[in-house]
Amino acid sequence: MPSIGAALGIVVWIFQDGHLAGLIGADGLGYVHLTVPVLVGAIAFGLSVDYEVFLLSRIRERWLAGAGAHGSVAEGLQRTGGIVTAAALVIGVLFAGFVAGGFTPIKSIGLGLVLAVSLDATLVRMLIVPATMTLLGRRNWWLSRALRPVHERLALSEAEPRQEKPAPGQEDGALAAG
Rank of each mutant, 00 (worst) to 15 (best):
Q163Y: 11
R139H: 15
A174H: 15
I10E: 01
K107M: 00
L175E: 12
V38R: 04
V84G: 07
G112D: 00
A67K: 11
E158F: 08
G66Q: 09
E61G: 14
F95V: 01
Y51V: 03
I14V: 10
G173R: 12
H33P: 09
I106S: 11
L111E: 00
A74K: 10
A26N: 04
L175C: 07
L77G: 15
I91V: 14
A65R: 09
G82V: 02
V117H: 07
N140L: 03
P130S: 07
F54H: 10
M133W: 04
S118F: 10
L89Y: 05
P105R: 01
T80V: 03
V84R: 08
T35I: 15
G178E: 12
F15V: 00
V150R: 14
A21H: 00
T85F: 11
L8T: 08
A88E: 01
I109N: 00
S3R: 08
Q163V: 15
P161L: 08
A146W: 12
A42Y: 07
W13I: 10
A67H: 13
L111I: 00
L29F: 05
T104Q: 09
P149D: 08
F103G: 00
V38S: 06
Q16N: 11
R60F: 04
Y31C: 02
S108K: 00
M133V: 03
G68H: 05
I83P: 01
S57Y: 02
V93E: 06
L135F: 11
P130N: 07
G5R: 04
G137P: 05
R153A: 15
V117L: 04
L29M: 14
P2D: 13
I43W: 07
G18A: 02
L23D: 08
G102N: 13
R148D: 12
E75V: 07
M1W: 04
E158W: 08
L77Q: 12
R58Y: 10
D17P: 10
T104A: 12
R162I: 15
W13C: 13
A7F: 03
E152H: 13
P2A: 04
E164R: 15
S157C: 12
H70C: 05
G112V: 01
A67V: 02
G30Q: 09
A146G: 10
A159V: 07
E152K: 15
V40K: 02
L64E: 14
R62E: 13
L39D: 00
S3A: 14
K107V: 00
L55I: 03
A21S: 07
S108F: 00
W142P: 09
P105S: 08
L115K: 01
A155V: 11
L56H: 03
A44F: 02
R60N: 06
I128S: 03
R162A: 15
R145T: 10
P130A: 08
G25S: 09
A44C: 05
G46N: 11
F54E: 03
S57H: 08
L119A: 08
W141I: 09
G25Q: 08
R138T: 11
A116D: 02
T85H: 06
L111H: 01
L34N: 13
D17G: 07
Q170T: 14
Q78L: 14
V117Y: 06
R58C: 07
L111Q: 00
M133Q: 13
S144R: 09
L39W: 01
R153W: 13
N140C: 09
D17M: 11
W141H: 11
V117M: 07
L29H: 06
L175S: 12
W141P: 05
E158H: 12
V73F: 01
S3H: 13
E152Q: 15
L29V: 06
L55S: 07
T35N: 03
